[in-house]
Simulated scan of single mutants.
Amino acid sequence: MLARIASAGAARMNEISWADFERVELRVGRVVDARPFPEARKPAYVLHVDFGPQLGIRKSSAQITRRYTPESLVGRLVVAVVNFPRKQIGPLMSECLVTGFHDAAGDVVLCVPDGEVPLGTRLA
Results as ranks from 00 to 15, higher is better:
R27M: 09
V46C: 12
A104K: 10
S72A: 14
G9W: 11
R23T: 11
L73K: 03
I89P: 04
I5S: 06
S7E: 15
I57A: 06
P38I: 10
P38R: 11
D50S: 06
I64E: 02
R76T: 12
H48G: 06
I5C: 07
A80Y: 03
L119C: 12
G115D: 11
V24Q: 05
V78W: 01
Q54D: 15
V31G: 04
E22F: 05
D107L: 02
S17Q: 09
V117D: 06
A44W: 13
V31M: 06
G90E: 07
Y68S: 04
G100D: 03
T65Q: 09
G75R: 09
I89R: 01
E39Y: 10
H102E: 05
R86F: 07
P43A: 10
G115P: 00
T121I: 11
L123D: 01
S7H: 07
F84T: 09
S72N: 06
T99M: 15
V81M: 13
K59A: 15
L119Y: 13
K59T: 15
D50P: 04
A34Q: 11
R86Y: 08
I16L: 13
V31C: 07
P70G: 08
G120I: 11
G56W: 10
P53C: 01
L97S: 08
M1L: 11
L2Y: 08
L110S: 03
S61L: 00
S72P: 01
V82F: 05
L77K: 02
